[in-house]
């Protein structure tokens, strides 16, 4: 809706931490614990995403700047203090060792339905979220209002849409999704909040959203491509190609998407070529 949420990284960090804490502290059976931890992650991410929305609407602070600042606040508070101090694993001994939190309960682990595969329930959850976002944005009144605000805030306001509320809602939902992503990482892969957790998923998320053209189906497709590039990078390392190529490819992909005009003439020529055989001269 015309908002740039650069704060995915910070929202993801709080979501991951919330999932790690909830997955450790709550004593529930697995069918309840996993959803509870994921909800905690989404709420934490939503709260962190809500801040820039409020600051933008009521104080006029540009969301790009505020989300960047909030990223660093989250990184330093969580990595430099919470995970190293109050929430650090007990018995980690030396205060300097960056051990991360205690592991979560086994009941909070995301189930891996296919034996022998590392695929966990994170993928269905992510796909369900994408479907829900698609439905919300294209089929529901609320989504229509969000898109109206993005297309023209003044016109939306004039036609009776509560612009400020809608912006705050959208930022909070965006934060909730980022937080959920962090929760999935903790419950599915890390099984605790690790001492060093510089994932870059938050920034990858921006690239994926841009390449997906900011629509839910596009984002799912771009997400799979990026995931494949990431996974492939680890393999490429075996044959001596540096894994940083994954980031490079992502950056170039965003560059290409950023400038459609760069390729418009090329596309037109390609189309003309493909039509040429059947067409009269």
């Amino acid at each position: 809706m015309g908002l740039f949420n650069i704060g995915g990284e910070g929202q993801l960090i709080w979501g991951a931490l919330a999932a790690a804490v909830a997955g450790r502290a709550l004593d529930l059976p697995a069918p309840l614990l996993v959803p509870a931890a994921l909800i905690a992650a989404a709420v934490a991410g939503a709260a962190w995403g809500f801040i820039p929305g409020v600051l933008k609407m009521y104080r006029g602070v540009h969301e790009v700047i505020s989300t960047i600042l909030l990223n660093w606040i989250a990184i330093h508070l969580v990595h430099g203090w919470l995970v190293a101090g109050p929430l650090a694993a007990r018995g980690s001994g030396s205060s300097v060792s960056m051990a991360g939190t205690d592991p979560i309960r086994a009941a909070a682990w995301l189930p891996r339905p296919i034996p022998g595969s590392r695929l966990d329930l994170g993928l269905p959850v992510a796909l369900a979220c994408a479907a829900a976002v698609w439905f919300l944005l294209t089929r529901m009144w609320l989504g229509f209002e969000w898109r109206a605000v993005g297309a023209g805030a003044v016109a939306a306001q004039a036609s009776g849409i509560a612009t400020r509320l809608r912006v705050c809602q959208a930022m909070a939902l965006s934060g909730a999704l980022s937080g959920l992503a962090g929760g999935l990482l903790v419950l599915g892969t890390e099984h605790r909040y690790p001492g060093v957790f510089r994932t870059g998923y938050g920034f990858d998320g921006i690239a994926v959203a841009l390449i997906g053209g900011a629509t839910a189906p596009g984002v799912v497709a771009a997400g799979f491509v990026f995931g494949a590039v990431r996974a492939g990078a680890t393999r490429l390392q075996l044959v001596g190609i540096h894994p940083s190529f994954a980031e490079l490819i992502q950056g170039i992909a965003v560059l290409l998407v950023a400038a459609p005009r760069l390729f418009a003439p090329l596309l037109i020529r390609l189309r003309a070529l493909s039509r040429a055989p059947g067409a009269p001269p």
Binding site: A207, Q250, G251, A259, P260, R261, L262
Partner: peptide, 27 residues
């Protein structure tokens, strides 16, 4: 070039530049 000649979204172009810098310089 991207943002002036090809009128790309300037925020997107900048983000792309950051990503390329991250990967290319590491390499």
């Amino acid at each position: 070039l991207l943002s002036l000649r090809y009128r790309a979204d300037q925020v997107v172009s900048g983000i792309a530049l950051n990503l390329v810098a991250l990967g290319l310089v590491t390499f």
